[in-house]
């Protein structure tokens, strides 16, 4: 720094004039701060600490609400599930939905591809029977007849006639799917 201030030859040193006003109360530190501020590099820096805080809270919230037993699936806006206080946690099984006069079946095959069938809800329901038979055959081949529990989830609107539900229950029983689980909204 001295090399910038001191110029000229050794015999005649030229010093740049410094602060030469010396009032009675010279505010040395204030002057120094003002000088520093004036010559400070103009750099923008984003404070990341609040962002890390926010992310931490989000992660904790999502982990607390994380459910490994639940299943993400579509519920029609026309369906209002009945409420029940004594339900058990839902497990992932194929789903049969009764919406109006239609019945739909939603599951995944062994390759993980979706299997979806929708048809009118009558006693015949050939497509539904066909797909139930296929999935049952595959599961029996894989796990054996004894280990096949025939578990299936059934969802319907609370205003649906119980006859429509029973029609499907009879079809399920005829096809060997006797573990029928009725899906409900937890009433807690």
């Amino acid at each position: 720094m001295d090399s910038e201030k001191i110029k000229g030859y050794a015999s005649r040193v030229i010093r740049p004039p410094g602060y030469h006003i010396h009032p009675q109360w010279d505010l040395v530190h204030t002057r120094h701060l003002l000088h520093e501020r004036r010559h400070k590099k103009k750099s923008f820096h984003l404070n990341l600490a609040p962002m890390v805080d926010m992310f931490s809270i989000l992660v904790i919230y999502l982990i607390m609400n994380f459910s490994s037993s639940g299943e993400v699936f579509f519920i029609s806006k026309d369906v209002t599930m009945p409420k029940a206080a004594k339900g058990l946690p839902m497990q992932s099984f194929p789903i049969i939905s009764i919406i109006g006069d239609k019945v739909s079946f939603d599951a995944e095959n062994v390759e993980g591809r979706p299997v979806y069938v929708e048809e009118p809800n009558d006693q015949k329901v050939p497509q539904l029977r066909n797909v139930l038979k296929k999935i049952r055959t595959i599961e029996v081949e894989i796990a054996g007849e004894k280990n096949f529990k025939g578990q299936i989830n059934l969802q319907a609107d609370e205003k649906t006639s119980v006859e429509n539900v029973k029609k499907i229950m009879r079809v399920l029983i005829e096809e060997g799917w006797t573990g029928i689980n009725f899906l409900v909204q937890p009433d807690k």
Binding site: L58, F66, V72, A84, K86, L88, I180, F182, V184
Partner: peptide, 29 residues
């Protein structure tokens, strides 16, 4: 940290079960 949290949040949002349902098993037999 931000990278890690971003990945975690994406994973948790994608796997979250937003609709929590219960089931009531019936004894058909």
């Amino acid at each position: 940290f931000i990278d890690l949290f971003s990945v975690l949040i994406c994973f948790l949002l994608m796997t979250a079960a937003w609709i929590q349902l219960d089931s009531m098993p019936s004894s058909i037999e």
